[in-house]
Design a protein around this nucleic acid. Structure first.
Lengths: 191, 191
DNA sequence: CTCACTCGTTCACTTAAGTTAAGAAATGAA
DNA sequence: TTCATTTCTTAACTTAAGTGAACGAGTGAG
């Protein structure tokens, strides 16, 4: 399990054994049950997550309705906005499946980063990469119809469609569950 | 003009006179005319931008049509995805107004960052902040209708609606220019 | 000044998403 | 297993966005 984390890190920097041990001594690994809420609206958390196995999601509660806006699966890193801007969270984070995560506190990260400048570098590169990826994602979303977005998802993250409830997928695509059902029927007809 | 840049930087780190001079010696400042294309689809640029005055936009050319997906105005920083992942650009960057920018090369940044670790820190914090902001933005987009998105824009970036052509605004809102016209008429009626 | 072109708006029509409701299927707890 | 709940689908109807076309206003090049 640890290897998954180190494989991920090795894409950005190389670690000495000492550094690996420093990370392991932080005791970051957690297993969480499906349905567990990791963060609630209004809370001020300092925790960031990295998904080793499983799936977690961000959702908003708007007019009593859950609106899921993102999914994080294997090898995805998530730092909630409330950690960055120290404001109460606007959203919930919850486990879609039984999952294995690393949970790291921003105080710990500050300490590690100042002790090992290498980590600072990794965090910068990682954030820049995620930002660029997120921008392309957003652009794709803006420039396509719900149907195209579903077909894109089918191409790029086919696993999500299998492992995630339809009504959560729907709001992820920016539409209602009924529209997703209809849209899928329409696509099948065309084939 | 230089002050705008230093004011921005001072939100993240504090600079000595030496460091300020190091930055100034890089000769980053450029004035660009309205309509200038800064980056074309297919190009592999290493340039990042910071807007001191004016407005630049990202747009895609899809089926011969321009789809504008973002605007950058005063105090906005933009590092194109092609700089990050070293791939040909998927989009164009162009000047909406006569503008004053800083243009910095990623090689220069690499050098500066290794010479002054402070900059590395600033870049990390800045990217993390931008990523968090971008996520909230994307979430808002997903969870609202075109009409709500227009009303949000009216709240959060009212200047954009004045300074940017309607058809560019439309694709920024994820709709067609005709729909934006109609939607605005609808809102006026309601009042 | 004139002509061509772009831009924003309007209209009629088409298409697809939102809404409300109902029912079947799957899930989970007692 | 049973019962309640959640999830997904379908349907009928409403609403809003997409499409194609036309028009006037504004802009820029010659």
């Amino acid at each position: 399990m640890h290897d998954i984390l180190f494989d991920f890190i090795s894409k950005y920097i190389s670690l000495t054994e000492d550094e690996k041990n420093a990370i392991l001594s932080l005791d970051l690994f957690r297993t969480v049950k499906k349905g567990t809420t990791l963060l609630k609206e209004g809370q001020k958390s300092k925790d960031s997550y990295f998904v080793l196995k499983g799936c977690i999601r961000i959702y908003y509660l708007i007019d009593g309705e859950e609106k899921t806006t993102s999914f994080y699966t294997e090898m995805d890193a998530l730092t909630p906005h409330c950690v960055i801007n120290k404001a109460p969270s606007k959203y919930f984070i919850s486990c879609v499946e039984d999952s294995i995560l690393t949970v790291s506190n921003s105080d710990m990260e500050l300490e590690i980063n100042s002790k090992f400048p290498k980590f600072e570098l990794m965090c910068r590169i990682l954030s820049e990469e995620l930002l660029a990826k997120q921008q392309i994602n957003f652009d794709d979303f803006k420039t396509s119809s719900p149907e195209q977005r579903y077909l894109n998802l089918l191409q790029n993250r086919p696993d999500l469609i299998q492992r995630v409830p339809q009504h959560q997928l729907a709001s992820y695509l920016g539409i209602k569950p009924q529209s997703l059902s209809r849209l899928r029927a329409r696509i099948l007809e065309k084939k």
